[in-house]
Structures are given as C-alpha cells and as structure tokens.
C-alpha cells in the first residue's frame, strides 16, 4: 500500500477541520475523495503531503511516516494543493524543463517530458508564454503539468477540475489515467461526479467536520 491513512483527524483550537477518515491507495490506483465544502478534503490531502500534522490517527507513504524533511518522502510525493510558485520571468516550457532538470533528469529527458506534457494538456502553443499571460483555466492546466513533470510515486490533486471546460477536463482525465498507468497512486479531492466516475477505482466520502 503506497498511501495508508487510518482514522486521521485534524483539530485546531477545538475546531474540527477533518473528522476521522481513512484513505488507502495502491500503486496504479486512483482514489477520489468526495464531500461537501468544509468536509476536510483539502486538509486530508495536506496531511498526506506532510504539510499539516494529524491530530489523531496514523499516516504513512510507502510504509514510512510522512515527513517533508525527509528527501525520500519529498521524492515520492508530488502534490497540487493550491497554485505552485510560478517564476514570473520564465516561460511555461522553461518552468517544466527546469523542474525536470532539478530532479536529476537529463537535458533530453527534461525537454521531451516537458514537450509531451504541454502537448497532452493542449498547452503546446502556449509554451513560450509567461505565467501572467494565461487565463485561469490555462493556469490550472499548467499547474497540473508542473505537478506531473517531476518524478513521483504518489500524486495528490486538490480539485484538478477547477475552472476547466468539458474539453479540458477530458485532458485532465487522460493525464490522471496515465499517471496511474505509470504506477503512481493518485489521491484526488474533487467535486466533479464525472471526473470521479471516469478515473477513480474507489471513492472515499468524508462526513461533515462540524465544530
């Protein structure tokens, strides 16, 4: 089991952000996390990403505790939880190549991977644009590309369908399927019934986190 979260809850100052919930994901599996606004979907992803400590329960990735200070953990987990930091003076293509190189990819691999990702998300024509020249939907697709360009075993996605039209949503579906086919465990919070139905093998529905 790549992702194993058992009875995880988060409370801050007496306020429950996430009622006890469990999520498990194997390599090559896509798990959808569903629930209403405020049910704690993003919080659960943050816990798995090691950005928020769980108040109770246990979480592990590849049988190791989640710890952002651990280089092996950082290499395993790629996440799209909010917009990643964008460099205003780099083009989209350069962003992707630089991130690829920073993970030890060769020049050729980085170039190929960046080009392939841009093409598959219908962003190839925008490769020489700067981030401020994108629409909100294009920015969302580019954020997904930045998340997927780096090597990983676990992919955490928070509402990847945001601001996308139906055609673009199909591109996201294809990329998620491909990440799973490459062996990644994908855990995805979503409000889209269609996307969850298309890609998820299992669904975890969170109960409201009141009080």
């Amino acid at each position: 089991m790549l992702v194993q979260a058992d009875d995880v809850s988060v409370a801050v100052g007496g306020i429950t952000l996430l009622a006890p919930a469990s999520v498990h994901a194997r390599a090559g599996e896509v798990v959808a996390i569903r629930g209403g606004n405020g049910s704690g979907k993003t919080t659960l992803l943050r816990v798995i990403a090691g950005a928020v400590p769980a108040t109770s329960g246990s979480v592990s990735v590849a049988s190791a505790p989640v710890d952002q200070r651990d280089a092996a953990f950082r290499r395993r987990v790629a996440s799209l939880i909010g917009l990643p930091p964008l460099a205003r003076n780099l083009t989209l293509g350069e962003h992707l190549r630089l991130v690829g190189l920073s993970w030890g990819g060769s020049g050729g691999e980085s170039y190929t991977r960046a080009s392939e990702l841009l093409a598959s998300l219908d962003l190839a024509a925008l490769a020489s644009r700067f981030p401020h020249e994108l629409s909100s939907g294009q920015t969302q697709l580019f954020a997904l590309a930045l998340t997927l360009v780096r090597p990983s075993e676990v992919v955490l996605l928070d509402e990847p369908e945001q601001r996308l039209d139906a055609d673009r949503l199909a591109l996201v579906r294809d990329r998620i399927r491909r990440a799973a086919a490459e062996g990644c465990a994908v855990v995805m919070a979503t409000h889209s019934d269609w996307l969850a139905g298309e890609v998820a093998q299992r669904t975890v529905t969170l109960s409201p986190a009141h009080g």
């Binding site: 990403a49 950005a51 952002q68 280089a71 950082r74 290499r75 987990v77 790629a78 996440s79 799209l80 939880i81 909010g82 990643p84 930091p85 460099a87 630089l98 991130v99 920073s102 993970w103 030890g104 930045l146 780096r150 090597p151 955490l156």
Partner: peptide, 15 residues
C-alpha cells in the same frame, strides 16, 4: 522565487 517555493509542496528536486 526560491523563498516562495519553500512555502509550497515540493516542486524542485533540490534541498
């Protein structure tokens, strides 16, 4: 940009 990257999920493969 490096300082901004610190506050976000790991993007670059560098410490």
């Amino acid at each position: 940009h490096a300082a901004e990257a610190f506050g976000a999920p790991q993007l670059y493969g560098l410490s």
